[in-house]
Nucleic acid binder design. Structure first.
Lengths: 248, 248
DNA sequence: CGCACACTTGAGTAATGTCAAAGAGTGTGG
DNA sequence: CCACACTCTTTGACATTACTCAAGTGTGCG
């Protein structure tokens, strides 16, 4: 709890300001996130309950089994969400980036942990006040249902990957997913930055880090991708990557 | 589309009836389902858009890629929800039973298929009218968000299973899940009826049907379960089953 | 009763995991 | 500024789990 910082509450504005300038109104991530479902004129309601935080790489900021009394909006950095078996086996259920939402829970307690891979910035919403906000702004609840539906579709796609794809197909699917994400965020259409380790990729794809490394080397040998260092991937043959990912 | 039957619309009631008796008010499954979020006095709104259907075993009633213009509530029987790879590999993402909901979708089209394993009865909600209903009854939308959150938690649990558990652990987890379902539905605490084939179980657990059979035989040899025929399982050592399922 | 269909079991194979060693990249302290 | 130490990655050799192919055994239905 030492590395987080709380932004000041919105303060009175000089007369003549065009509209309230509070942390949420100024937020560049809003358009990507659940917060966009609330009208400009009511952003103060959101700003009143939200706190802004920053955590260092490797810090766990959600612990499996802890009371689930917060929800989060990632505003920067990369997060891994994971589940553990008692003997330490880990399954990463998702990587989160700028604009992603975290914390939907049916339960009293978190059923997963979340760890910052890079330095991460996020907004925290206390559950009860947020629920009141959802009641007052049905558009926000509708948006949240849409987000949940999206995540459910992604989870089913991941089950197909974990249950039925080969190591090579899993890697191709993973790279494609990252490519789609960065492209949608306005990034380049053929370059990926891997913020996570081979071990994390393995824990996401249900493989060992060695198999991840071997599969990447194989894709590289076949000139589907190129590696610059170990974190920069350039996709040379996008169509071929898609074919491999779909098991064709 | 031949085997489905449409129930008649609610009809005028004799004077003095205690309250409207329409298909939804009489529905025994309502308490288990999303429909319970709507007050008795407004059930007519629900009944006005819902149609009741019955499909034979082996019939696909949702096809991957078709326009996603309906949502479903299963009122009887067992359903498998699955995704396919182009070469025919199949991943079952869930089995649905009485009271389960199907059809949340972020997309214009279904990202999965649904097939009746046994004879199945279900209610169908056309998407647009249901969305209007969700707008008019926020409690129903809240309930749907809860259902989605539950499914998301189950999907993450399944990712852990598919990515990190051994065949034996997967089978134990599967049997435990069925046991919890039947227990919650008021069934016996130690008996399970397997409506699906070994092949379906394999497609759900990311295994082949032979590995499913071998793992079941192993649990039987170790006296954790007993098999009566091939569809009836009796759990002899529940605590041991839990230990195996959790990888302890 | 016999024909399907599903299930079980065995033998050999293939894919991925495990263990080990060496190389590459990065940050720190002398 | 360099050298060392640490971590991550790659690659190799071998082990293991689960898959494939195949034969044989129920079991339920017409």
């Amino acid at each position: 709890m030492s590395s987080k910082t709380i932004l000041p509450k919105p303060r009175p504005l000089p007369l003549g300001s065009p509209r309230p300038v509070d942390p949420c109104a100024a937020c560049a991530v809003r358009v990507l996130s659940v917060c966009n479902a609330i009208g400009d004129e009511h952003l103060g309601r959101l700003a009143a309950i939200v706190t802004n935080h920053r955590v260092a790489a490797r810090k766990n900021f959600v612990l499996e089994g802890e009371p689930a009394d917060s929800l989060f909006n990632i505003t920067g950095g990369t997060v891994k969400v994971y589940k553990l078996l008692p003997d330490g086996r880990q399954q990463i259920t998702g990587f989160l980036f700028r604009g992603d939402f975290l914390g939907l829970s049916s339960n009293e307690r978190y059923a997963y942990g979340a760890e910052a891979i890079t330095e991460v910035r996020y907004c925290r919403f206390p559950r009860r006040p947020l629920e009141q906000l959802l009641t007052d702004f049905p558009a926000m609840e509708r948006r949240l249902l849409g987000i949940a539906s999206n995540e459910l579709a992604a989870a089913q796609e991941q089950m197909l990957l974990l249950g039925r794809k080969t190591a090579r197909e899993r890697l191709a699917s993973f790279l494609r997913m990252l490519l789609e994400r960065t492209t949608r965020a306005g990034g380049p259409a053929d370059r990926i930055e891997l913020a996570m380790t081979r071990s994390d990729i393995g824990d996401y794809l249900g493989l060992t880090l060695e198999t991840v490394s071997r599969s990447l080397s194989e894709l590289k040998r076949q000139k589907v991708i190129a590696l610059v260092g170990s974190a920069h991937v350039t996709v040379l043959e996008r169509a071929e990557l898609d074919r491999i990912a779909d098991g064709i």
